[in-house]
Amino acid sequence: MQPPRVVLVTGASRFPGGFLVARLAQKPGVERVIAVDSVSPSKDMMRRMGRAEFVRADIRNPVIGKVIRGAEVDTVVHAATVAQAPKSGSRAAMKDMNVIGAMQLFAVCQKAPTVRKVVLRSASAVYGGSPEDPAKFTEEMSARRPPQGAWARDCIEIESYARGLGRRRPDIAVSILRLAPLMGPRLHGWVARYLSSPIVPSIVGRDARLQLLHEEDALGALERATTTGPAGTFNVAGDGVVMLSQAIRRAGRVEVPMPFALFRSVGRALTGSQMRSFTREQLDYFHYGCGLDTARMHADLGLEPRWTTCEALDDFVRGVGLTPMIRTSWVDRAESAALALVGAETRAG
């Protein structure tokens, strides 16, 4: 596979699209980088993009076809899907942006003779969440129960359109990256927001297994898939897992266990604005978690994440300056008192 010459990236005003554009613009082998979004990037993002060209366009609009054909784009990175409906929109508007937008973008790619590679940013949300989940999902597996969340359903449908493109145009290498929840000091994603609340609700009798991906490793995976990566579907996550209870302690938060029925209502009330915007699949994630088999990421994509799951979490905690709600000195004194009490009882017995 020849390295890309002209790359078009959708979702360029947000993470990770904009930061990927900035990385690609610094690669001398890439002649042109075209950043596309329906909203303009911030001034800081525009500076980061350097020599990249920004085009304000909606991928549902025929103008995107003119851009791809006119610039003779050979590589398209689709990173424009949104996990939540726009503030002034609805579920129907979200599906139109995500599913219809992807369908029309891939239709343009199918008709463009210069396109040779398509990279899709997907998510581990496609695996859903249920008590029947395996310890680790491989790329060949599907959700044990049909996901109820809109974001997960959109990702599944978008992936099907991407695979359809690969079947109709075998000369186009289609790479699908199923990213674990992102974590890092710059990106305050939904797991980060959850762990930022002083009081963190959890579910009685559950301790979800979390597998996270550092924001820099997410960019590294997208860059590798764009420049040298093979076709295929890849789980992308940091090595190792962290239990939800451990993550809450590492973030210095106070855990409040409660029944799942109250988790959706009382839990949201306890965290203020942190959980109010969470989607169905995001709430389910803290119920069941999700483990990913990343053997294919290592062997075929050739990606070795720099941060493990725990290191990504710790980097976020340091980066945003979270301070423990309970001082470690208090915990140390309590532990010392407990050990002294146990020792006294042992000697007395």
Rank of each mutant, 00 (worst) to 15 (best):
residue 278 F to I: 08
residue 206 R to P: 00
residue 175 S to T: 15
residue 80 A to H: 03
residue 320 V to H: 08
residue 349 G to P: 08
residue 134 P to F: 01
residue 184 G to E: 12
residue 161 Y to S: 06
residue 322 L to P: 04
residue 333 R to I: 03
residue 191 V to L: 07
residue 49 M to H: 07
residue 117 K to V: 02
residue 256 V to T: 05
residue 46 M to N: 04
residue 144 R to T: 13
residue 349 G to Y: 06
residue 158 I to D: 01
residue 262 L to K: 11
residue 246 Q to P: 00
residue 218 A to R: 05
residue 81 T to M: 14
residue 118 V to M: 02
residue 65 G to R: 14
residue 203 I to N: 05
residue 239 D to M: 14
residue 310 C to I: 06
residue 185 P to D: 05
residue 227 T to P: 02
residue 81 T to Y: 10
residue 188 H to M: 15
residue 87 K to D: 15
residue 241 V to F: 14
residue 232 G to D: 03
residue 248 I to Q: 06
residue 349 G to L: 10
residue 79 A to C: 08
residue 170 P to L: 02
residue 337 A to I: 05
residue 175 S to R: 07
residue 339 L to I: 12
residue 304 E to L: 13
residue 309 T to K: 11
residue 182 L to V: 10
residue 131 P to V: 01
residue 277 S to Q: 14
residue 76 V to I: 09
residue 197 S to A: 15
residue 248 I to S: 10
residue 24 L to I: 07
residue 295 A to G: 11
residue 268 R to K: 15
residue 174 V to H: 03
residue 220 G to D: 14
residue 24 L to R: 08
residue 127 Y to E: 01
residue 102 A to N: 04
residue 175 S to Y: 06
residue 216 E to C: 09
residue 123 A to D: 14
residue 122 S to H: 01
residue 45 M to K: 12
residue 328 T to W: 12
residue 18 G to T: 08
residue 81 T to F: 09
residue 55 V to W: 05
residue 282 Q to D: 00
residue 212 L to F: 00
residue 336 S to I: 14
residue 24 L to H: 04
residue 52 A to L: 02
residue 160 S to V: 04
residue 53 E to G: 03
residue 105 L to D: 06
residue 341 L to Y: 12
residue 254 V to A: 09
residue 306 R to K: 14
residue 283 L to F: 00
residue 78 H to S: 08
residue 235 N to M: 07
residue 191 V to E: 12
residue 289 G to Y: 08
residue 131 P to Y: 01
residue 309 T to P: 05
residue 43 K to Q: 11
residue 135 A to P: 06
residue 313 L to H: 03
residue 87 K to W: 10
residue 321 G to Q: 13
residue 269 A to V: 15
residue 120 L to I: 01
residue 130 S to P: 03
residue 59 I to T: 11
residue 221 A to D: 02
residue 118 V to C: 03
residue 344 A to N: 12
residue 215 E to F: 03
residue 79 A to F: 02
residue 161 Y to H: 13
residue 208 A to Q: 09
residue 120 L to H: 07
residue 239 D to G: 11
residue 268 R to Y: 06
residue 201 P to W: 00
residue 48 R to W: 12
residue 120 L to W: 09
